[in-house]
Design a protein around this nucleic acid. Structure first.
Lengths: 375, 375
DNA sequence: TTCCTTGACATGTTCGTATAAGTTAGCATA
DNA sequence: TATGCTAACTTATACGAACATGTCAAGGAA
């Protein structure tokens, strides 16, 4: 879509889908749109004309153009009679996401639902596009991993419109606080608390924490890291907190670690990592400097992914239920859909928070042992 | 009807109905009509535009406007409401499959298709269940990774039924020979040939090949392994071919390697692996025996997955296009769907075979170096 | 109060013009 | 003969202007 009329058309359609224009409400006149979009009337008419043809709007000469009421026809118009559920995630092919999706797919398939996948690349624009598609295609429910969950979401109207249209949705891994959605999560704060306390109990004092802070998980994990220090009365060196955004994940943490290793004072002896993916990357940095893990440095990962056991250094990590989380999400969305139809009215439906526990392997070591070996 | 564009519209419609304009015949160009009816081009376009919307005509930029074939119009109304494509794979969450799916999802999403996922767990029963679902739900096309592609498929009737119902499908990674489907593949035989020849050229003679032989890829890769020996006139020790089935992948190859390492004669110096996943597992076996890679043993993987660079030993491996393969599959199925509706009738549609190449890293070494270091 | 006029504003129709982009046939080149 | 390029023709997009026609509510006339 790069033509002007297509842009105008999309803008109008979006406002219909996110509920700005309610059924039978009048939309701005052609001349108003002309100024708004800075295009000629012809272009506006072309855009509106197509939307009228597609049934989104209707015109009344002399009165204006109005939003059509699609709710009555929606069921018949869209051919998907069967049970369909959309899964919207940030990165379907990376890291632990395939396992989560697999868990949900398995459960939903068993119960006769088709699963459609949408990948946002952590991009709000794409998220919006897919929410539009979910509304127009007539899905029965959606499992959504929020995009950039630490910041406010510009698509909040779409979620509210989902509620108005009675399409159940749940969020996994994180959620937008303002919506208070049903959700399936891991106890991230507690997980990071365990990561950090594990190192503190082994005598580490200079512990660097690496956190991706554009999503909710990262900020909660940072909170857990801080809490572990506070409760154990270990002072925190502000330099030892490294935050980064998704776009920076390939460079910034690596660079920051190298800076920290180069400095003379308060050299870190332990690393708390946002996830295993990062831990493996940092491991590579240490390898190039001939630092041995765990003798010279302890590392704790998060998610207990398959990466944790692949390398010669098996990572101590925090368990992430992955497939079970996916299953739980599948179960929750089905419960919501069926309770909507009054089938399982007796059930209590609740969000799920998985507890976390530490899986100890050989990437961490008490700091005393470290010293003994050096002597 | 007294407006000018209505008069023009009616005049054109009459000529369609009385047969002056036959189906697929070109109608006079806009500029000709301008003169004929003595109206502006805009008026002509308005008249034609409405007829296009009503399905009487279709326009092709650069070529002209043509009379539609109304006889086929009814078919389209039944099937084509939403654009839905099914992807059926053996293991959606493991290894390189997420990347392949991601590639296909990206391409299909860009082109307005919804992607539904089905996971067979390499199980014919499940495959059958999903094929039924694809037929009954009314998908527009399917991308299928065949289950146990080395053996005959009990669901062949379902595939034939797809053809009868004119639901296009393609196969990826492997295919059932009897069906001769459109397909997107990697040149597996050539890939394994490169793996093996690489070791032979470095002086290795006792090369063990590990192949999963319940799918087509494994049998083709074994063929490439044999061919490389034959063409380079290196005799093959039958003990040095290890075959296994999917269910055995966690035990049998590991066990067989240990047996081979324990025996006295013809000790292997190189390992050709079915894929990187196996290579990493075998690497762990060598670690427990304190054998060093590549000094004591050379290993070649297949697929150039992300596993290849994670460990301290970076794997030499054969490139697998993964995401590009997914994209190509997406493109192929869209071409098939659209050619069915007569849109891109001119295109030539063909299966795709990606060439393979070896990516050399430090898991392989010339055998001469090996001996020198030992002395 | 009721009815009618009227002006503001909405969409509907029609003209004109310009540039962009895709298709095709035929010409020129190898 | 085959290939590549160009020119001519087609529809696609976009701007601007003018006038027609239908709606509606405010305000004056009956």
């Amino acid at each position: 879509m790069q033509t002007k009329y297509a842009i105008v058309k999309q803008a109008i359609k979006s406002k219909i889908l996110d509920g700005t224009y309610e059924p039978h409400a009048k939309i701005p006149s052609e001349s108003v749109m002309m100024k708004q979009f800075d295009v000629s009337r012809h272009t506006v008419r072309l855009a509106i004309g197509e939307l009228v043809n597609e049934g989104w709007l209707y015109r009344e000469q002399g009165a204006g153009t109005f939003c059509a009421d699609r709710s009555k026809h929606q069921l018949q118009q869209n051919g998907m009679q069967n049970k369909n559920i959309a899964i919207v995630t940030t990165y379907i092919s990376d890291y632990i996401f395939p396992s989560i999706i697999r868990g949900a797919e398995a459960f939903l398939s068993e119960h006769g639902y088709n699963v459609s996948l949408f990948n946002t690349d952590n991009n709000h624009e794409k998220e919006r596009e897919y929410l539009e598609r979910i509304i127009t295609t007539g899905f029965d429910g959606a499992i959504i991993e929020p995009t950039k969950s630490a910041s406010a979401n510009p698509n909040i109207n779409y979620y509210l419109n989902l509620e108005r249209l009675q399409i159940p949705y749940i969020m996994i891994n994180a959620y937008y606080d303002a919506l208070e959605p049903f959700r399936v999560l891991v106890d991230d704060e507690r997980g990071a608390f365990l990561q950090t306390e594990h190192l503190i109990q082994q005598g580490h004092r200079d512990i660097v924490g690496f956190f991706k802070t554009d999503d909710m998980q990262g900020t909660l994990r940072m909170k857990g890291y801080l809490k572990a220090h506070r409760e154990n009365k270990v002072p925190i060196n502000p330099k030892h907190i490294v935050t980064y955004k998704t776009e920076e994940k390939h460079q910034k943490p690596i660079h920051e670690l190298e800076v920290l290793l180069d400095q003379a004072d308060a050299k870190p002896t332990g690393l708390v990592c946002y996830n295993d993916e990062l831990a493996i990357k940092l491991l590579d940095v240490l390898r190039t400097r001939d630092m041995k893990v765990p003798q010279d440095m302890s590392i704790v990962g998060f998610d207990n992914s398959n990466l944790a056991e692949l390398s010669e250094v098996k990572l101590t990590s925090v368990e992430h239920p992955k497939a079970e989380l996916g299953r739980a999400a599948g179960k929750l969305i089905i419960d919501l859909i069926e309770s909507k139809h009054g089938k399982g009215s007796g059930k209590t439906i609740d969000s799920v928070v998985f507890p976390t526990e530490l899986v100890t392997r050989n990437s961490t070591q008490a700091i005393g042992v470290n010293r003994l070996e050096k002597i």
